[in-house]
Simulated assay, not measured.
Amino acid sequence: MAGRLLIVVNDAEFFVSHRLAVATAARAAGHDVHVATAPGPGVGAIARHGFVHHEVPLSRSGRGPVGEWRAFRALLRLMQRLKPDLVHLVTIKPVLYGGIAARLRRVPGVVVAISGLGHVFTADGARARMLRAALAPLFRFALGHGNIRVIFQNVADREALSKLARLPEGNIVMIRGSGVDLEQYRYLPEPGPPPTVLFASRLLKAKGATEFVRAARLLRERGLAARFRLAGSIDPGNPTTVTADQLDSWRQEGVVEILGQRADMATLLAEAHVVALPSYYGEGVPKVLLEAAACGRAVVTTDHPGCRDAIEPGVTGLLVPVRDADSLAQAIETLLLDPDRRQAMGAAGRRLAEREFGIAGVTDQHLRIYAALERGVAGP
């Protein structure tokens, strides 16, 4: 019989956008599903979908030693009270704090989802290296549970964290992204002119927002008639966020259309000819690239962990170097001027999404992992 499942994510909106389908499938399979997140706008949606929500003081950015201790203590107390049979920990702080708490509270089974390792693991500076060294013993303890599966979305993250935490190969599972609803994100013919390029993400410099605007500026200077659309919001909690002043400057310049935060991603993708995400962020596999593939849109993204895992280079999209607006502009121009190649890439992207990214397959993989852990057996 399926037991009690506690899913811990730092951000409620991230749970709704990236893990709701898994939670819904687990409930349908008989699990008593509870969700723990920080307070935020997504909490109401969690309740509307019928899940019991628990508020914990998690944050994506640091709150100092006292704040971090409170977050860990809250998870420790929650697991003591709920006594879950399984915990599913998503994003780095829940993984670290929740993994330690799960071992201390003797939770029978643990699922860890690494949806991108973030700045600490991707930066090359001395401070980042020192922090990784300091975190290594904590990750080894957090991921040292005797009945655990660690889900990675891309090979680079798997290699980095496996080495740091000394993970046994049998505890590792690869699932390529969070999945996409192939019915909601349908394959539709391209719209008419003008050709449109879409960037849809949090407006972070590390997501490539600045390079996207620079590429749009370069292509306008070359006389290319195209629309460049920027969808997303700034993120004051992230040190690489685009500032409000910078966003206003772009709006006044008029090179890109500033759309703000949008909930109608399927519509935006259907209105685009090319989707660009020139990210150098610590990605898992960016969900917008899975959605673009499902909608049959060619992609331009970076040769960067997670981004390159979302496409078949030269088949469903093009890869460019990170932090390189010139190369980004050239790749976009190549696709805008060659509709036959662009549309062939879009069709190949849809086939890739059907083969690899469908939400039904992703939820089924999770349910098999849950069942294996509840049996306490090796392998997913």
Rank of each mutant, 00 (worst) to 15 (best):
V107Y: 09
F121D: 04
V56C: 01
V56N: 02
V150M: 02
G192H: 10
R77S: 14
V180L: 05
P305Q: 06
V173T: 11
A156F: 05
A142H: 11
F212T: 14
V256D: 05
Q80S: 13
S201A: 15
G346W: 02
V256I: 05
A215I: 08
Q343G: 06
L20N: 03
E312Q: 14
V52E: 10
G170L: 01
A272P: 08
F15Y: 08
V150N: 03
A29S: 15
R103N: 11
P305D: 05
D264Q: 07
A231R: 09
G50E: 07
T210W: 05
L6H: 04
L135S: 07
L290W: 01
E312R: 15
V288N: 13
G98E: 04
A216M: 09
L318E: 15
N10F: 02
L164E: 02
R214S: 12
L259F: 06
A216W: 06
E68F: 12
E257A: 05
R202S: 06
V43P: 04
P239K: 04
R222F: 11
L328D: 03
V155N: 12
L290G: 08
Y370Q: 11
A29G: 10
C295L: 06
V66R: 15
A12M: 07
A353I: 05
A294E: 06
L219T: 12
Q343I: 13
G306C: 01
V35F: 08
R63G: 15
A325I: 00
A74R: 09
T24I: 10
I46A: 05
R251G: 14
L335I: 03
S162H: 00
V107R: 11
L352C: 07
V320A: 02
V285G: 00
A71H: 08
A133V: 09
P94K: 07
N171L: 05
I148Q: 07
V213L: 12
R214D: 12
I311M: 02
A101H: 03
R229H: 02
A226D: 00
Q261T: 14
R262V: 12
A101T: 00
R214L: 10
L268N: 03
Q153F: 01
D235T: 05
V285H: 02
D85G: 12
E312H: 12
R77H: 14
L230N: 10
H34K: 10
